[in-house]
Measured scan of single mutants.
Amino acid sequence: MATADDFKLIRDIHSTGGRRQVFGSREQKPFEDLVDLGWLKRSSVDSRATHYQITERGTSAAL
Rank of each mutant, 00 (worst) to 15 (best):
D6P: 05
K41D: 11
G18L: 02
Y52G: 01
P30S: 07
V22N: 03
T3F: 05
R57E: 15
D6F: 06
Q53D: 08
E27V: 06
T55E: 02
A4V: 11
D36I: 13
D5E: 13
T3L: 05
D36W: 09
F31S: 01
S15P: 01
H51L: 15
F31A: 02
E32A: 08
M1V: 13
R19H: 15
S15R: 14
H14D: 03
F7M: 07
H51M: 15
Q28C: 12
S25A: 12
Q21E: 15
G18R: 02
E56N: 08
S44E: 11
R42P: 06
V45K: 10
S15C: 15
V45I: 11
T3Q: 06
L63C: 10
H51P: 02
A49I: 11
S15A: 14
G18K: 02
R42G: 04
F7W: 10
R20A: 12
L37P: 00
Y52E: 01
R42K: 13
G24A: 08
H14F: 13
E56F: 07
F31R: 00
S43D: 13
M1E: 12
G58A: 01
S25R: 10
T50A: 11
W39D: 01
L34Y: 01
A49E: 12
M1A: 11
G17S: 05
R19D: 07
S25E: 15
Q21Y: 13
P30E: 06
V22E: 03
F23C: 15
W39A: 01
D5S: 09
T59H: 08
R11N: 05
Q53L: 10
L40Y: 00
S43P: 04
T16G: 10
L34V: 02
D5G: 09
H14A: 10
L34M: 03
S60C: 14
V45A: 09
Q53H: 09
R11I: 12
D36H: 13
V22P: 03
T16N: 11
S25K: 13
D6C: 08
V22K: 03
T50H: 07
F23Y: 11
H51I: 15
K41E: 14
T59W: 06
Y52S: 01
I13D: 00
S47A: 12
L63T: 09
D46E: 09
S47I: 10
L34R: 00
T50F: 08
G18Q: 02
T50M: 08
F31N: 01
E32I: 06
Q53K: 07
R26V: 15
T59G: 03
E27Y: 10
G18V: 02
S47T: 11
G18W: 02
T55P: 00
E56Q: 10
A61M: 08
L34H: 00
D6W: 05
S60R: 13
D12Q: 11
Q21K: 13
R20M: 08
F7G: 02
D36R: 13
K29W: 05
T50E: 04
S25Q: 12
K41C: 14
E56P: 12
K8L: 10
L40D: 00
T55K: 01
R20E: 04
D12A: 11
L37F: 05
G24D: 12
R20W: 08
S44D: 09
A49Q: 09
D46A: 07
F7S: 03
L34A: 02
I10S: 00
T59C: 12
T50L: 06
L9Y: 03
F31H: 03
D33Y: 11
D6N: 12
L9N: 04
A61I: 08
K41S: 12
E27T: 08
D12P: 00
D36Q: 12
R19L: 11
V22M: 04
A4Q: 11
V22C: 05
D5K: 10
T55N: 03
G17A: 05
T55I: 02
L40T: 02
R26D: 15
R48L: 14
T16M: 08
K29E: 08
P30V: 07
K41H: 10
G58E: 01
D46W: 02
F31Y: 15
I13W: 00
H51G: 07
E27P: 07
D6K: 07
I13M: 04
K41P: 01
G38E: 04
D6Y: 07
D36K: 14
S47G: 14
L37W: 03
S60N: 12
G18D: 03
D12V: 08
S15N: 13
E32T: 06
T59I: 15
R26M: 15
P30Q: 09
K8Y: 08
F7D: 02
L63D: 05
G24R: 09
D6H: 12
V45C: 10
D5T: 06
A61E: 05
S60I: 14
S43L: 15
T59S: 07
L9W: 03
D46M: 06
A62N: 02
R19A: 11
D5M: 09
H14Q: 09
D6A: 09
A62V: 05
T50K: 07
H51W: 15
H14C: 11
G38Y: 03
R26N: 14
P30M: 07
G38R: 04
Q53P: 01
A61H: 04
R26I: 15
L37N: 02
Y52M: 01
D5F: 08
E27A: 13
E32H: 05
D46Q: 07
G38Q: 04
T3P: 03
G18S: 03
I10V: 06
D46N: 11
R48A: 13
G18A: 02
D6V: 05
T16Y: 05
